Simulated assay, not measured.
Amino acid sequence: MPRPRHEPKNVAPEVFTANDGRPKGQRIKDVLTALVLESRDGELLPSERVLAERFGAARMTVRNAMVELESQGLVRRVAGRGTFVQHPTLVHSEIFRSFSEDMRMRGMVPGAKSYRSRTRPAPRDVATRLGVAPGDPVHSIERVRTADGIAMALERTNLSATRFPALLAEMGRDDSLYEVLGKVFGVRLETAEQTVSIARLSPAQAKHLEVPAYDPAFLVERTAVDTMGNVVEFGRSLYRGDRYAIQMHVSRSAGR
């Protein structure tokens, strides 16, 4: 069954038909690049057929331009579903930083939405990771982390409510958790143990991250430790698979 006709949004017709002396293939690529950069990440683009009609060009010419954009990482083509805007991939390195620190270092503005916080009895798995007794009070914080307003990660983390009793009162939606811990409680996180696995986003998770349901994501489990060797935080976060790559430093053992 063919996809419903999807027209370009907010693009003046003359953009497609203007003749400025450039070869048609180059002009089509330039116009599509501008269209992609001005579109929301994950947005569905018009089909090759629709674009070919707008440009007055052969579908193969449009397809060649799309292939070039895909090779540059600006779009992703999904069989049977269409071509989607894909903004540049970020490298998730082994250097221990907060989300806010990481985004600022990339020249992006960190933020958050869908913020929810509560104090609850610690489930057994969370209690074990935090080094508290099951049922002890823990603060749980869940939010969608954004960079330049784009959803990047669904972050869920837990901290001891006994150790940080006023945390939720001090913590704002867009605040860096690690900065609040340092300023309010005098705690500086030094190291973390992380495991990374691949997960499929449920429809609810995908809606939070503004991607199609069941898209792949990186599931990152982190246990963070302070300078005194005490566990401070345990969390599980989902990072968009279309926006992140994982970087690791590996080496061979001595004598091999």
Rank of each mutant, 00 (worst) to 15 (best):
L167S: 04
L168K: 05
S114N: 14
S71A: 12
D102C: 01
T195K: 10
E190P: 02
N158A: 09
R252T: 06
V138T: 02
A161S: 08
R49S: 13
R5A: 12
V250R: 15
Y239D: 10
V225M: 12
V31E: 08
L168V: 09
R54C: 08
V78N: 12
E142G: 10
T223P: 04
L45R: 06
I141A: 06
T227P: 01
R40E: 15
G172Q: 11
G56D: 04
A213T: 09
A153V: 09
A151G: 05
D102S: 12
R222K: 13
V180Y: 08
R54V: 00
A122F: 04
R124F: 06
P88V: 10
L189P: 12
L219C: 11
P88M: 12
R163W: 04
L69F: 07
K24T: 13
N10P: 00
T162D: 06
E14Q: 12
G149S: 01
I150H: 02
M1T: 06
G241D: 13
P137A: 04
F185G: 08
V31S: 02
G25Q: 11
E70H: 10
V31N: 05
L44P: 00
V50Y: 11
E68I: 09
S93M: 02
R124K: 04
H6K: 14
S98C: 01
R5T: 11
S237C: 07
A79M: 07
R104W: 00
E94I: 01
E101Y: 02
A133Q: 08
T227S: 13
E68M: 03
V225E: 02
G73L: 10
R77W: 09
K24R: 15
T128D: 00
R188K: 15
A166C: 00
T119E: 15
T146N: 03
G241Q: 09
P13H: 03
S197Y: 00
S253Y: 12
A12L: 13
R120Q: 14
E233R: 13
G25S: 14
D20S: 09
M171S: 00
A254K: 15
P165V: 04
A12D: 14
A204F: 07
T157P: 03
R129V: 11
G21Q: 05
V144R: 03
R129S: 07
A151M: 02
P2R: 12
G56L: 07
G229D: 01
P4S: 05
L201G: 00
V187C: 06
S176T: 03
K113D: 12
L238A: 03
A204Q: 11
V144Q: 04
G21M: 04
T61K: 07
S140Y: 01
I28D: 02
G149K: 00
E193F: 14
R76I: 10
A133N: 04
P165K: 06
L189M: 15
R97L: 14
A65F: 01
E101T: 07
P137C: 04
E38K: 13
H92P: 00
M228N: 13
G149M: 01
V225R: 09
S160E: 02
S98P: 01
A206E: 14
L90Q: 11
V231K: 05
I246T: 10
V126S: 05
F99V: 09
S117A: 14
I141T: 05
E155Q: 09
F218W: 15
A127H: 02
H249M: 08
R106H: 11
E170I: 04
